[in-house]
Design a protein around this nucleic acid. Structure first.
Lengths: 134, 134
DNA sequence: CTAGGTGCAAAGCGTTTGCTCGGGG
DNA sequence: CCCCGAGCAAACGCTTTGCACCTAG
């Protein structure tokens, strides 16, 4: 069942790849995972479709400083934590004891939202730091 | 008075340019602002020094999705709001009624911090949207 | 004298885009 | 048939880097 218009085999499998992976794949992750089954697939197509799928709200893009963007098929409100070592991203659910972050917008500005990203070291990158600094 | 070791005229003026500008300049902003007084200055040097100054904690880097990084000479705890139109960044002070954002870190992860960025439309970009969609 | 910084230019990376061809409806 | 979308490769914007020269200490 195709829910959106503008069908193509590639678009379908790119969406499925993001939904299936619980790992917030990068464009290249998606490309690499699909390439074996579809040897003609091109990276440009992956980028185009990921952006398209984001624009129609079927997936979300996670922009990360100094790491390639990642994509997320989970549309419910949640936050992410990124490993500052390897760039891996996991879901976390944040508690805001006093409500969501809020500011007094500067004069003349129209607030649109905020982005909140936690960062830290994942288990395996933490281990590596231990080894390097014994 | 030179507070840090490893002095150079360029490094000094790059630091001063960031401190003097209240506008969270990009590397290129700094380059353009200094070029007239120092025609031999190269963009690579600006990048190198901005990164160096950040690494020793004299300035902070603000990473922004889809816009060049910006640099901030204000070291006190504060937040930023970025215009989704033109990329301009202003300081805002966020109030967290119940304390700063907090999460239960995933098993094995070592939390390091978080980044919080508000976004919206600045006065002049908001005006332009009004004109385009009357 | 020498350690480190500069200037320059080229390369790097992730991402986007122009063009032509192909396949779905 | 027609049009959207794929494939390919080149271009893009920002940033980093290799190398030879220069400069502060």
């Amino acid at each position: 069942m195709v829910i959106y218009m503008g069908y193509s085999k590639q678009r379908e499998s790119i969406l499925q790849a993001v939904l299936a992976s619980g790992l917030h794949p990068t464009a290249d992750d998606v490309y690499v995972s699909l390439k074996p089954r579809d040897p003609n697939l091109s990276l440009g197509t992956v980028y185009r479709n990921l952006n398209y799928l984001e624009s129609i709200g079927k997936i979300k893009k996670i922009s990360l400083a100094d790491h390639p963007d990642r994509f997320d098929g989970s549309l419910h409100e949640h936050q992410h934590m990124m490993c500052s070592g390897c760039g891996k991203v996991v879901d976390v659910d944040a508690r805001f004891p006093g409500g969501a972050p809020h500011i007094q917008p500067p004069k003349g500005w129209i607030p649109e939202g905020y982005s909140l990203l936690f960062y830290g070291k994942c288990a395996c990158c933490a281990d590596q730091s231990d080894l390097r600094t014994p």
